[in-house]
């Protein structure tokens, strides 16, 4: 269990402040970013009518998420928000799949990753809400249905950040704890590949999709 309570950290002392870096998470996030950048380069290098394999995969992502975005928002706003939604999904999917490769670990296993992405979604949703409706109308919604519900409405909004990030974190860390314990019990003989497929590929894919959709839906709740 020590593996889960101990996170490799690097502490820097700068101007009297302690800067703490979770080294493993940062490295793994760089790996994911590197893979995505290389993939983006390969997919768009020679765009042709008869696509190369990378372009096919890229087009699959783009068409699927463009449809979802324009369903939730309208056509005009979909163009604006689609890039973040699609890249959020690709980033999370790769993050959740990274743990399948031995020696690598999911960046989403560190609560800081889902939490910061959750805060990112929260800020985008509220910023676009204020921009679309104006501050007065935006603030008025907190006083519905009755004025004294305001503190509870605000707590409810903040609870969305907690729930969206802990949902991803709990599922990813749950999968890896279960795989670790079961592999330990049966001396890594037979079950782990099956469990990696279930928790890594299946649950990881579903949770990446759910996180992305919820971010999208929270944006659409604010702008409409």
């Amino acid at each position: 269990m020590d593996e889960f309570t101990h996170i490799p950290q690097l502490t820097l002392h700068l101007f009297g402040f302690n800067l703490v870096f979770n080294t493993e998470t940062i490295m793994m996030t760089w790996v994911v970013m590197g893979i995505l950048i290389v993939f983006g380069f390969l997919a768009t290098r020679k765009i042709s009518f008869i696509p190369n394999p990378f372009q096919v995969v890229g087009e699959l992502f783009v068409t699927a998420f463009y449809d979802l975005t324009s369903d939730a928002l309208d056509e005009e706003m979909a163009k604006k928000y689609f890039p973040i939604i699609c890249s959020l999904f690709m980033f999370l999917l790769l993050c959740n799949y990274l743990g399948i490769i031995p020696k690598l670990s999911e960046p989403t296993k560190d609560l800081n990753t889902p939490l910061s992405l959750g805060i990112l979604g929260f800020v985008i949703a509220h910023y676009s809400g204020i921009k679309a409706k104006g501050f007065k109308k935006y603030a008025k919604e907190y006083f519905e249905p009755i004025f004294f519900m305001a503190p509870l409405n605000i707590i409810g909004e903040l609870a969305k950040v907690v729930s969206i990030s802990f949902r991803l974190y709990g599922n990813v860390i749950g999968g890896s704890i279960i795989i670790l314990v079961v592999s330990h019990l049966i001396y890594s003989v037979a079950l782990p590949p099956f469990m990696v497929v279930f928790f890594g590929i299946f649950v990881g894919g579903i949770q990446a999709f759910v996180f992305t959709m919820l971010t999208l839906v929270y944006i659409s709740l604010q702008v409409k």
Binding site: N171, G174, G175, I177, V181, I206
Partner: peptide
């Protein structure tokens, strides 16, 4: 299959907590 797999998430949460309670010192 997808629907019932999503249903298992709360049970997985329970399992995470029970492993933490069993194996942490």
């Amino acid at each position: 299959l997808v629907g019932s797999a999503v249903c298992q998430t709360p049970a997985i949460f329970g399992m995470v907590i029970s492993f933490l309670l069993m194996f942490m010192d």
